[in-house]
Nucleic acid binder design. Structure first.
Lengths: 91, 91
DNA sequence: AACTATACCGGTATTAGTATCACGGATATG
DNA sequence: CATATCCGTGATACTAATACCGGTATAGTT
């Protein structure tokens, strides 16, 4: 087994990431956001729905830039399953 | 052509990313950093040498956390080819 | 010299990311 | 009803990411 399949936790994490990105998109259409980020609409949809649990780094960078998100804040939010993060610790 | 190959710019960007990560590793061994980040030594080596130009998002997140790097700062440094970034702008 | 540790490289194998196409459902608007 | 737009899903195709293996080189230690 040279490349282990993704675990459930990793897929859950991908779903949380997608949910946050979808929230950040707000009223904007998928087409405009995808075009501005330089990805296809289908890819954006799969990321938002969690069907791409571990997207490429620069894909999330482009999406974060398009949506005005801080990467560090995004990661903190993903690492916090509860919708009410009290104090995101980096360590 | 359903999945276009990576461009030269993307590979250059991957090399810059790897160079920054290697600098941040400093004196630490690849084995310890890879173990702490939860990736294999070969993967870390390929990322540092730029042979994995577009790593997974959470792979870079884990490496940044291990090396104490800010993701936003890392992206700014990658986007700045010059080795002397004056003022990293988020926008 | 032999051993150990670290790093680099090539090959191999398997899963995953990305894009295109085709279809369906929901919603709004004529 | 017809049309358009947006979102969603499934299939298909192809490249890339990741991991394991073996080999090589260099330096440090005994």
């Amino acid at each position: 087994m040279v490349r282990v399949p993704l675990t459930e936790d990793e897929r859950d994490r991908g779903e949380r990431l997608g949910r946050l990105l979808r929230e950040a998109r707000g009223e904007r259409s998928m087409a405009s956001v995808a075009a501005q980020a330089g990805i296809s609409v289908e890819t954006l949809r799969k990321i938002e729905t969690g069907r791409i649990p571990t997207p490429a780094f620069f894909t999330i960078v482009a999406l974060g830039s398009t949506l005005g998100l801080s990467l560090d804040g995004l990661v903190s939010a993903v690492d916090t399953p509860a919708p009410r993060p009290p104090a995101p610790r980096v360590a």
